[in-house]
């Protein structure tokens, strides 16, 4: 029996599909932790990035600080998060992993929301102000809809990175799909290891695809880049 057959046999054991260490529970844990980390990162980075982009001030400083978080290895972040979680009485597993994932998710969201808002056509903003939009309306009716595609890309990149990296949580006794990889290594049970790795990869791809759908639904036809210049009869002016 080849290795693939062994993997198949491992998967067909009904005990793999139920209980705490079953695949559905591990996938659920993994998604919950990743979702929460990205959610918190959005709450921090999106308003900050949008505000900095709107005012156009201090944005690059903030982005540089945030990018230092990206430069730190995730393992190191986890190592920092562990004593922090202990000192806050949050214990092992879930919380230190969550704390380590947030700095990973913040930079792409912050950078993209800042750049997206700042890059909105100046003429469009001037027209909006000239017609009597209040600043709040400029932001909510013009800047955010036009920035949406790029912001969604930022969130997508953050989500994919977190889903892939959250496997490390198993090192600090967390749940999620990392369990299969860490335990598979420890037990020299390579079927387990491979299944874990494949599931993480599939999950990351699924997240990527899901955001593609979100973008289709959330972004106005006119704001999408690919609609530009479609079926314009007269020659459009050069810009």
């Amino acid at each position: 029996m080849g290795f693939l057959g062994q993997v198949g046999a491992w998967l067909s054991n009904p005990s793999r599909w139920q209980g705490v260490d079953g695949i559905p529970n591990r996938v659920g844990e993994h998604l919950f932790l990743s979702g929460l980390a990205v959610g918190i990162a959005i709450l921090i980075a999106l308003p900050l990035g949008v505000l900095l982009g709107h005012t156009g001030r201090g944005g690059f400083a903030a982005i540089n600080v945030a990018n230092m978080g990206r430069a730190l290895p995730s393992m190191a972040l986890l190592a920092f998060a562990l004593p922090l979680a202990f000192s806050l009485g949050l214990g092992l597993g879930f919380w230190p992993t969550l704390l380590a994932m947030i700095p990973l998710a913040v930079p792409p969201i912050l950078t993209n929301s800042f750049v997206a808002v700042r890059e909105v056509d100046r003429d469009v903003l001037e027209a909006a102000r000239g017609m009597g939009f209040r600043e709040w309306h400029v932001l909510s009716e013009v800047e955010l809809p036009l920035a949406a595609p790029l912001i969604i890309v930022g969130v997508r990149n953050a989500a994919v990175a977190v889903v892939a990296t959250a496997t490390l949580g198993a090192l600090v006794a967390g749940g999620g799909l990392g369990r299969y990889i860490i335990d598979g290594l420890a037990l020299q049970e390579y079927e387990r290891l491979v299944v874990g790795a494949i599931l993480v990869a599939l999950l990351a791809v699924a997240v990527e695809l899901a955001f593609g759908i979100v973008e289709r639904l959330a972004v106005s036809t006119g704001a999408r880049a690919d609609s530009a210049q479609r079926d314009a009869p007269e020659t459009a002016s050069p810009r």
Partner: peptide
Amino acid sequence: EVTALRRRIGYVIQQTGLFPHQT
């Protein structure tokens, strides 16, 4: 009041400044 003023003054600019995300 500045927004009230601007709503009573039509404003046209070179690149039109049309909102690309709106019909």
